[in-house]
Nucleic acid binder design. Sequence first.
DNA 1: GATGAATGAGAATTCATTCAT
DNA 2: TATGAATGAATTCTCATTCAT
Lengths: 213, 213, 213, 213
Amino acid sequence: MDLTTTTRARVAGKRERTKQQNRLLILQAARKVFAELGYGATTVRDIVRATPLAAGTFYNYFNSKEEVFQAMQDEIALRIRPRLHEERAKARSIEEFILGTFRTFFEYVASDEANFHAIRRNTDTLRVRMDTPEILAGFHELRSDLEEAIANGLFPSLDPDYLMAAIVGVAFEIAERMLRRARPDTEDATRFATALFMGGIKALPTINSGDTA
Amino acid sequence: MDLTTTTRARVAGKRERTKQQNRLLILQAARKVFAELGYGATTVRDIVRATPLAAGTFYNYFNSKEEVFQAMQDEIALRIRPRLHEERAKARSIEEFILGTFRTFFEYVASDEANFHAIRRNTDTLRVRMDTPEILAGFHELRSDLEEAIANGLFPSLDPDYLMAAIVGVAFEIAERMLRRARPDTEDATRFATALFMGGIKALPTINSGDTA
Amino acid sequence: MDLTTTTRARVAGKRERTKQQNRLLILQAARKVFAELGYGATTVRDIVRATPLAAGTFYNYFNSKEEVFQAMQDEIALRIRPRLHEERAKARSIEEFILGTFRTFFEYVASDEANFHAIRRNTDTLRVRMDTPEILAGFHELRSDLEEAIANGLFPSLDPDYLMAAIVGVAFEIAERMLRRARPDTEDATRFATALFMGGIKALPTINSGDTA
Amino acid sequence: MDLTTTTRARVAGKRERTKQQNRLLILQAARKVFAELGYGATTVRDIVRATPLAAGTFYNYFNSKEEVFQAMQDEIALRIRPRLHEERAKARSIEEFILGTFRTFFEYVASDEANFHAIRRNTDTLRVRMDTPEILAGFHELRSDLEEAIANGLFPSLDPDYLMAAIVGVAFEIAERMLRRARPDTEDATRFATALFMGGIKALPTINSGDTA
DNA sequence: GATGAATGAGAATTCATTCAT
DNA sequence: TATGAATGAATTCTCATTCAT
């Protein structure tokens, strides 16, 4: 982080640095506000308000809420997806693949719990919103990783679309239940989800060619 | 009072019929508009415009688009919950329990595709909360059905909370992928989900006392 | 009250009695709601809501909020104003006139305190609303009573317009302070206001012809 | 900060000037419309329409018509309070105190008739609340001025709370009647109110310790 | 006459976007 | 480039009034 800042300072003049900072300010504010209010409900004003900048400044960087959202996803693609991808790429067994995926996910959710706890208070009336772009982006890539693993012979020839869907569904729902427990235990959740899939994959019917939407 | 209600329901004057009709008109319009524009982008005006009714009439039935949305969800849950419960109640084996649940769910989803889509496919960007009383009740019901099955010795002593979560997650996510396919095949989806759980359950760790927060 | 009801029942058929009752229901509701929300802020809906009647029924009796208000004043004119008027008419001295007026007013305010106490809670932020039609009606008549008292030689030839204004102003403001005291003492307030005017009237300049706009 | 503020105030850029102007435009429009339609009947739209500004601009300055109204009241209180206080501070006799208070008030009211009317003559039916911080402060100031005058021996030991209330009530009510006359005569009003209190104070019961809630 | 839902004009309010400073 | 007030179209919501039952 220090290094990055230093490097940036070296290559860019003051003007340039401020520009980068403002862009970042907006992106961070957007991430926070989207997570709190949901994409649909947040307005450009909400994002600007979560920023020390003026309303007009927003339009020097983005043209709409949609554009910030896209930029956010791009940023994330550059940061989180490679990590998940890498982890699965180096998996030498189905178990490493599955377990790595769930553990990474549950640990992320547990570490980011602070963002959710306001919502969690209403125990039974609201469900946790785990639809931040980070998470979605991570899982969109899951399918192609699965396809690759099947192509490489690591996985049997299962339906990668349904398998991805099952993993995503289990990850989201178990994460939510995990957070509601007295002492969220990521290892326990990881063990459960992994066992389910390790046993399940053996039982799943293999296919010849997947039909993928 | 009971008598009055019954009588009224039976003879249902024109007034009463119009009311039911208008409520339905709004719900149908809402479903259509949500499916077209996504939940976030649709306004109450959009819904009213898709209706022969006057602007103010909307507010005789619902107070916001959120309320219509929840009513939509509740209607759906109301239709499918009893079927699911019945199916599980008569199950004589784990497979009947699991297969019955998934088949019923996928068949319902396929038959009521429009509604399911309106609810699930809301923007591609963010997931919608599913937290109406009816839906939550459906989840609770699945869990207690599981607990009963475990108590009866039908199921091994698994974590019913996580098991419920896993079933719910798989059901929703696979249903969504299924609908996106060229020719939605409920049997194929049922086979996939059932096999996953039949194999998985064998591999899952058994517990002594569940922590169900 | 019993007597009135009986009498009314005797002269009117069932239909007629219901009509009278509904009219009364609306008038009572209106009085309550006007007192709570203020005339400007209350809507016909508010009045109807404070009634067991349906919205449309309102229009069988009155055409607008204004009309109810007028009717209310008429009702009051028939009940309260005569009492105040009578009291002053039988006054044999300035003191009886002044004291009777203030005592009646302060006692009314103290007896009706329940209506105000919700507002009174916010000790310093809101002033008590003592602008119920009853009170206003009573004071509108005060001026003509004063004029008559001057004409009869009971009062010296003072400016009746200003005198009325002064009495009204003192009555309202002192009533308000009185209600804020730990133990509202109507006799104390009456003594204060009466003494002020008894002394003041002696000092006031007499006039030949009042200018009363 | 002080410096900045001062500097800013002195050079006051165009932006700042426009802002002040717009605030004033709204307040003036509000005064006009309140006076014409009465507080209850005027809508925010009415005020905006009486302005060259756009609908949304109103909300950059005030959040409701109530807020504009209170701002109006505060502006007035802000103008008159210091004058009243000064007048009473330099009083060397009861008469100077009383007469100075009433004359200052009536002259102000006559000079700013438009504003006073806008506030007092709001519908003929119901009285308007006068409860902005500034106005309340003005009342409190009068009371403490009275208490000081009593402590100094200028006034006899009267109930300062009721005395304040009486002065306020007489001032407002007589001012209103004065303005309704063909040719408002501030001296006449001052003479009347002063005489009332000069005579009245002599007759008022003295107390040992005031009960001032 | 009573009912209460429907109506639709219109009021309050928000918000993306512009633009002078 | 940053600022932040102005804009006004669009939206939400209310309400007096009507009218079929």
